[in-house]
């Protein structure tokens, strides 16, 4: 696990005899991974898109107020009353003012709604990933390290969770809490419920991964050394084992986020996630499917937004995995 064997692949093997001698330096695992990651063009592209998307989501509200955009503004003048409220013009009413067109019946600007939907989708996906990975990591590391009855108990609980029909539960829970619960109403409530439902039922996947990794880590010399120096459970768990688990946790978080984005979109598509008129990608698709025969362009806009986002996260996650886990390549 020392860095001595690595030379970056693209560099010449040895410096020319009369050139300046190449300095030999040690590199940390992180530096090696970074060099490897930089060489993977698809992953870098995914990473750039992810950063842009996060910026878009964070700045969605300021952008809207800066340009005076309102995701819920109606533009009846852009609709054709004779055709039952379909957008005027080709391609779903695309124009300079409305580059992605407007939606049928209400004439709301689709670009603004996609921007508005970005922060909802990403916040729910990040929140749910954080929740499930926190539970999964803590329980997984405990099951792996302590073994015995702790392991048996946690593993059985994971089995029970995996036997639940997740989507069904998610729908049932979000429906019954729709009216208001825990003193929350409207959008904050819907987002909290989504984060909870998606995050709380997804943790066993992370738990299994962390448990497996911990099982092999706990027999390593540095853990024995820490234990013989008198370190106790919590110290070993969080100061010795956890730092070595950062790689897999990071990779699977990056790969869980797109799954959660799809999940949130699916729930909103079924009408139990984010409720209209609040713009969300899944909600827009649910609306668009009704017009698939007469205004198919509408469906493509939120569909592409979801596709690009999920693809970017998947590319980044794949790249991170290849960079952090030399065995995978």
């Amino acid at each position: 696990m020392t860095a001595s064997v690595t030379t970056a692949g693209n560099e010449p093997e040895a410096a020319a005899p009369d050139g300046p001698a190449k300095k030999i330096e040690g590199r940390s695992l992180g530096q090696i991974a970074w060099t490897r990651f930089k060489r993977d063009k698809a992953a870098v592209a995914g990473g750039v898109v992810v950063i842009l998307l996060i910026l878009l989501a964070v700045l969605a509200k300021p952008i809207e107020s800066l340009f005076g955009l309102d995701p819920d503004a109606l533009h009846q003048d852009l609709l054709d009353a004779n055709l039952g409220g379909l957008p005027l013009g080709d391609w779903g009413g695309m124009s300079l003012d409305h580059p992605l067109g407007v939606d049928p019946l209400q004439g709301r600007d689709l670009l603004t709604r996609v921007i508005e939907g970005s922060w909802v989708s990403l916040l729910v996906a990040f929140g749910a990933t954080l929740l499930s990975n926190t539970i999964g990591t803590v329980l997984g590391i405990m099951a792996g390290y302590y073994g015995g009855w702790v392991d048996t108990l946690i593993s059985r609980v994971m089995d029970v969770f995996l036997a639940f029909p997740l989507l069904l539960f998610a729908i049932a829970i979000s429906t019954s809490l729709q009216g208001g619960a825990f003193g929350l109403h409207g959008l904050p409530l819907h987002m909290m419920v989504l984060i909870f439902v998606i995050g709380f039922f997804n943790w066993p996947y992370m738990g299994r991964i962390v448990r497996g990794q911990t099982l092999s880590l706990r027999e390593r010399e540095f853990v024995h050394a820490a234990r013989s120096l008198g370190a106790r459970g919590p110290f070993i768990l969080f100061k010795e084992l956890l730092p070595n688990l950062v790689g897999p946790i990071l990779v699977y978080s990056t790969l869980l986020i797109p799954t959660n984005i799809l999940f949130e979109a699916g729930l909103s598509f079924l009408g139990v996630g984010i409720q209209p008129p609040q713009a969300s990608w899944g909600g827009m698709l649910q609306d668009a499917i009704r017009y698939y025969q007469v205004d198919p362009q509408y469906m493509v806009v939120p569909g592409l937004a979801i596709f690009i986002t999920v693809l970017a996260f998947n590319l980044l996650g794949d790249g991170l995995r290849d960079a952090l886990d030399p065995k995978s390549n």
């Binding site: 797109p258 899944g282 569909g303 979801i306 999920v310 998947n314």
Partner: peptide, 9 residues
Amino acid sequence: SLPVFFTGA
């Protein structure tokens, strides 16, 4: 990366 309801539709 494609939601199944999008491919389906």
